[in-house]
């Protein structure tokens, strides 16, 4: 591609944040190790050099206080971008997230705005154990009052970040560690894509068909999209033409695009790295079943994390994680019925 400008998700997040900080002096960033270190996952790298330590604020390890503080600052007209280093850590501060950040707009009858972004990393596959490997998408998407964003590539990551910062509502921006492009973490190459330097936004609630197909719809977010694309390649070798849908945001959820795709293909596989029960996979299948169950020509399948804490040992973790082969097997199972 001519004039191609490939960025990692980490760099595209930092670029979007910097651009928003230039256009709006009320935008600032705070969190653990986001200053000199530039974020454990690189998504604030370079910001402190340009904006200084007043607008790029390292915090103590006090998530309840600084997430609560972000809510207070947002209500007072600022636009904080806050980092919760690992989504697994929400257990120490969830009150500030679901009872405070997500509810104050409603409690105030819409008179208080809460324009803040809570960035957090998720995802396993590198033997970091059961408290540093979860994605927990469903937990956040289940509770009302916060938007939930899950980019699968650098182009989307940048546009979704700009939209998140400009939104007057709280946005949880959930990035996947395996897509960040950090040297010390294995990175999915498909996430590092052409990303224009100029500012742009991507609207929430618009899923993207990343590969068109006619035989089966594979739905996912984040790393799941890449697993879906790899599965589609494997299926193609078997003469099956799969369509892959990247939801991009879980709240709001683009149910129409998913439904229209399933109506076309008649077959549905939902991929999720979150625990299987009570989560994204069930929600997507319910969406189709409620709207028109006859759109489905076979029972839908899900490829999700088993309902177990994440194991450390490499063979055990790999056994549990979704992968392209599992998606291919799910298709075969669907056709056997």
């Amino acid at each position: 591609m001519e004039n191609e400008r490939k960025l990692t998700i980490a760099r595209s997040m930092a670029e979007a944040t910097a651009q928003e900080m230039r256009r709006d002096e009320n935008v600032f960033v705070m969190g653990e190790d986001i200053g000199q270190l530039g974020g454990v996952y690189g998504n604030t790298r370079g910001l402190i050099e340009e904006f200084g330590s007043k607008r790029i604020r390292d915090t103590p390890i006090s998530e309840t206080a600084f997430i609560g503080a972000a809510v207070g600052a947002a209500q007072d007209g600022m636009r904080p971008v806050v980092e919760l280093m690992f989504v697994d850590f929400f257990g120490v501060c969830f009150d500030a997230i679901y009872n405070l950040m997500a509810k104050n707009i409603y409690f105030s009858g819409g008179k208080f705005k809460v324009p803040m972004v809570l960035m957090t990393s998720g995802g396993g596959g590198y033997s970091d154990g059961g408290q540093h490997s979860q994605v927990l998408y469903g937990t956040f998407a289940h509770l009302p009052g916060m938007k939930v964003v899950c980019p699968s590539n650098a182009y989307d990551a940048k546009g979704l970040m700009a939209t998140a910062i400009r939104d007057d509502n709280p946005v949880v921006y959930m990035y996947h560690k395996s897509l960040q492009g950090m040297g010390w973490l294995g990175t999915e190459q498909g996430a590092t894509v052409h990303t224009p330097e100029e500012e742009y936004t991507i609207p929430f609630g618009e899923a993207k068909i990343v590969k068109e197909g006619s035989d089966v719809t594979i739905v996912g977010v984040g790393l799941g999209v890449h697993n879906g694309l790899k599965a589609a390649k494997l299926l193609e070798e078997k003469g099956v033409n799969a369509e892959v849908v990247d939801l991009r945001t879980l709240v709001p959820l683009d149910r129409d695009t998913v439904f229209n795709s399933v109506k076309k293909t008649g077959h549905l596989i939902v991929v999720d790295e979150d625990y299987q029960s009570y989560g994204l996979t069930g929600e997507i299948i319910a969406t189709i079943a409620e709207r028109d169950i006859t759109a489905l020509k076979a029972s839908p399948q899900r490829v999700a994390y088993p309902d177990i804490p994440i194991p450390f040992s490499r063979p055990m973790e790999r056994f549990a994680l979704p992968n392209p082969e599992k998606i291919v097997n799910a298709y075969a199972k669907m056709k056997e019925q």
Binding site: V71, A73, A96
Partner: peptide, 8 residues
């Protein structure tokens, strides 16, 4: 937390 943030 919100009071600290408002003060910030």
């Amino acid at each position: 937390g919100p009071a600290v943030g408002a003060a910030l």
